[in-house]
Design a protein around this nucleic acid. Structure first.
Lengths: 290, 290
DNA sequence: ATGCCTTTGTGAACGCGTGCACAAAGATGG
DNA sequence: CCATCTTTGTGCACGCGTTCACAAAGGCAT
């Protein structure tokens, strides 16, 4: 069972820490803006502020790329833009396919940020025959049947999945089998891929839940403070509370009844099960970035 | 001017590590799926597989919530669903506003994952007067002028920004001033917010760039291996050959003219097929999709 | 009851990422 | 050519996050 987990590689790809790689696009964006304003050089302090990071961190990040700065002066904007672009592999053109042209897929297809950074939408693919031929963002949608040939003919190595959760794993497997080695997944599902394939996921639902957690925490602390200070501030509008019924007591081994014991031991819920784990709810894809 | 950084201070919110919080939604999704299949209990091993993580990590994550498992048996699915939901603050209803109803904003509005997880779209807001009143996903779009009153009237504390990059910061400030304390940003910009406000960003462009980096690395290693196996001669680059010679000489402060110094950065990639990145300049920062 | 077997919960080691603080490098002015 | 000032590049320490490995806990069969 080569249930390749997500990305579990040498973490440090050829010397450049993953955390640094994730920030390079941020620096690149800030630098591009400076470049357009014809700013010749920037100090680590200025650039760090623009990118929203610590200047020491920025300098260390750049140190992994080499010594591209000039002490006492800063970094040459144009030169740095080129170096980072090269490091990120943006000096070449990356054909990309988007699978699943629903609301989200269409939004992605229309996203202007593709072309401007070295990415080119090579094809839009959807399983709905009715969509075939329809132009979206100026590109005719093609049917899933042609997925393999499209990828092969265009040398596509990056695929974007914007399908419903239920179709994601299958689409993923076809993409990988056809030669795709990097996938950006917008479907709310955990994708299983073989080693060597990179998967990055973007999930609106998860992001919101994380925010909700912090929001709840903030509300709690605030309440505690208010209580302590005895109503210094006006009581915030009570949020509509939809309280879930508490399953009451924790299941203390009790459930003796339905105990045919579906045998948890023997069937370690593996890939087969995981596969159908799809959307708990009819979850439609989700999220998207900008 | 409180150039508030993102969120990075309390790191460990009330004992639960941030990394753990980020995984809870993942567990919750897997558990919900099991719940719908009426599976009574799961072992950490099974659940970890379904969520795509290490079982030890999962157990440690749960240990921060309390001892909800039964040794020798595993975790009660229903009970755990409740506990995690409660911890994430999903037992209450969170009204959310989406600002910027373009392609992306509309896609988000249509996303089914909202309601299913305790989130409710309270309002759709757009700056275009022509959009006002138009129904999107069954909700009438409202004009930006009403932003403050909408937030106040509905007690909204979570806002989603799906506007073009240029408008994001301004919208953000209005949201925060109106009472929003958590923001999910889809615009490709770094938002500055005061302390106490959480910001999470989703950026397609960045994700793709990270994938491109790894893709390029893979291509490089592959080429190296091929070369080694093929007799270790001729650095035959595989696919989109990378291997670009350091083009522009680094700006060694040389030019006496501190002026604009167009810099040779545009660097015509001397070597073969490596297409030069699109325009050394036309790189428009991007207008959000939408 | 008793012993076996499964699975949790966690102590401890390890590695990555972050941020401080500073010496070295280089520009600039005299 | 030398002094001074600015900014880079990085050694070092600290803390979070991950993973291993195992003792304790509890079910289950005998």
């Amino acid at each position: 069972m080569a249930t390749g987990r997500t990305h579990r590689l040498p973490t440090r790809s050829r010397g450049i820490p993953e955390a640094t790689v994730a920030r390079l696009p941020l620096y690149l964006r800030a630098l591009t803006a400076l470049s357009e304003r014809s700013v010749p050089t920037v100090s680590s302090e200025e650039l760090a502020a623009a990118a929203g990071v610590n200047s020491a961190k920025l300098r260390k990040d750049f140190s992994y790329l080499g010594s591209y700065g000039t002490r006492g002066v800063g970094y040459d904007v144009e030169y740095l833009v080129y170096q980072i672009s090269r490091e990120l592999g943006l000096t070449q053109d990356w054909p990309v396919v988007i699978v699943g042209i629903g609301n989200l897929g269409a939004a992605l297809a229309n996203y202007g940020g593709f072309a401007s950074r070295g990415f080119r939408v090579a094809a839009l693919i959807d399983a709905d025959p009715a969509m075939a031929g329809k132009p979206v963002a100026g590109i005719a949608v093609q049917h899933t049947d042609e997925l393999e040939s499209i990828i092969s003919d265009n040398g596509v190595s990056i695929g974007v999945i914007a399908t419903p959760a239920g179709a994601a794993q299958q689409v993923c497997e076809r993409l990988v089998a056809a030669g795709v080695t990097s996938i950006l997944n917008f479907a709310p599902t955990v994708l299983s891929v073989p080693d060597g394939v990179d998967v990055r996921k973007v999930d609106l639902s998860i992001e919101l839940q994380i925010l909700a957690f912090h929001e709840q925490r903030k509300a709690g602390e605030e309440a505690a403070q208010d209580a302590a200070q005895a109503g210094a501030t006006a009581p915030a509008p009570a949020r509509p509370g939809r309280v879930l019924p508490d399953p009451a007591a924790r299941p203390t081994t009790a459930g003796a009844t339905t105990g045919p014991a579906p045998a948890a031991a023997t069937a370690p819920v593996t890939s087969a099960d995981v596969r159908d784990n799809q959307g708990p709810d009819g979850d439609v894809p989700a999220v998207m970035p900008a």
